[in-house]
Write a protein that binds this DNA or RNA. Structure first.
Lengths: 257, 257
DNA sequence: TGGGGGAATTGATAGCTATCAATGACCCGG
DNA sequence: CCGGGTCATTGATAGCTATCAATTCCCCCA
């Protein structure tokens, strides 16, 4: 189960981008109150209902933030990677559940203590403010992607966002001579929920993009982006229809086999 | 054109929810650097490219934050009402354009001065942090709404969000004996862009909801929410199909006329 | 009071997408 | 090495939705 290291001993983490600009004393205080936690892929870190009594900072791996609807479906609202904060700093419920999309390691700060430190440390407050601002920008980018009418466009947007947003993380995005290789950290079902569609459609649209030569599906969860330009065009506009309708592409594919 | 009041004289504003918990001295400092600006419906407050050199706080009216795509389409990422902040506090571009959805009044703080004050005033920083946190929550709610597969569900979600989010503003949301009356501050075309669809579909889905008795379209931009429960169900899940498919509803409507 | 023009609505049709069903690929544990 | 299960893919079909076109509504202004 979840491994909980009960010591605040100096963890390498606090050099992570979250806290790059804070004062040494603040860093020490954080360090002292911090606990390292580890979860394995699939484990639940935070349940929907229970507002967590800690603030988390991801050290490695990927977390999925999501909301459970009445019918049990999960709607993903964000992916968390190293350097991201989660949990709610202030009063009020944190209304999402957090699940480990891969094996994960994060540091956890007791909520009360963190908030106390926050009040006393403008530098920390600034760091948190920056973090949330970035998160907000990301959420807005996602909104734009989601408001794309066609699925291929949403997927293209998602791939590009993965790329630009997680580009600095080797295990996820890796440039090669043929293009950029992206590791998709979530299943087709989750991806479908994220993009407001169903897994079958994800599969079809992905293969349609592949047949157009824009991407290459090396494994279901490892995709090579060949033509960023074309993807960007597909993401910004559903201009695929200019070239050929999705249906055309699909029927060509059928003939070829 | 835009009316720019060049005085920082005490404006009633600073009692607005944004700055409810700040110290008097901070309030005075804000007051001193603040300029009131007024724009009429349809005017552009911030262009896409130019990063604004001020931070704005809405006093009255509604602003639309949006991003212009390559093909010229506008993707709305948020609506701003009284008490909301906009612009970017830190370095880096503010990548959205802001347009007056109604006649609007807001106060503008020179960016450098605001940021300076921010560094010196933990209370202000806290207030801004809270504001952005709320904004983030809102963006995430919107993501969930947008990931709804069916249009009627997205609209239902939007109406409810308007309701819960802008409930405190009389001009937008008003409870009556028959239900809650919501004023839609944007055109069908904008609403369509916001929800990732087209105006015709908005119209149809809206009328379908009306024919089911969940809402009543008093005017194109004034809608009465009759059955919140039913709307919530429609928003969380596309359960409309359990009752009757959208097509059934539409054909019934055709018969009735 | 009578256009003019944009917005909203309605109709008809084609086309994506959801859905249901079935097959295939892969991983894990026995 | 062989099940069992989950996940991805593929097929077929029905059903929403986008699109194009036309009409109506409404607001503004002469």
């Amino acid at each position: 189960m979840a491994n909980d290291t009960p010591t605040g001993a100096h963890v390498g983490m606090i050099g992570s981008p979250i806290f790059s600009d804070i004062k040494p004393e603040t860093r020490d205080a954080l360090d002292a109150m911090c606990r390292i936690k580890r979860f394995r892929k699939g484990q639940i870190v935070v349940q929907d209902e229970e507002s967590p009594n800690f603030v988390g900072g991801v050290l490695s791996g990927i977390l999925r933030m999501q909301k459970t609807l009445l019918d049990g479906r999960q709607h993903i609202v964000g992916l968390l990677v190293e350097g991201d904060l989660f949990g709610r700093v202030f009063d009020g419920a944190f209304e999402y559940s957090v699940e480990a999309a891969t094996d994960v390691e994060f540091c956890s700060f007791p909520r009360a203590a963190f908030e106390g430190l926050l009040s006393r440390s403008p530098d920390l407050e600034r760091a948190v403010l920056l973090n949330i601002t970035n998160e907000l920008d990301r959420a807005r980018e996602w909104m734009i992607i989601l408001s794309n009418q066609k699925i291929a466009g949403r997927i293209a947007g998602f791939l590009l966002l993965m790329c630009s947003r997680f580009g600095r993380i080797d295990h996820i995005v890796e440039p090669t001579v043929d293009g950029i290789e992206v590791k998709i950290p979530i299943s087709r079902l989750d991806l479908a929920h994220l993009l407001g569609t169903r897994p079958e459609s994800i599969s079809r649209a992905l293969h349609a993009l592949a047949d157009e030569g824009h991407i290459e599906i090396q494994e279901p969860d490892r995709i090579l982006l060949r033509d960023i330009e074309a993807l960007a065009k597909a993401a910004d506009e559903d201009e695929m229809q200019t070239v050929a309708t999705l249906k055309d592409v699909l029927s060509v594919k059928r003939l070829k086999r």
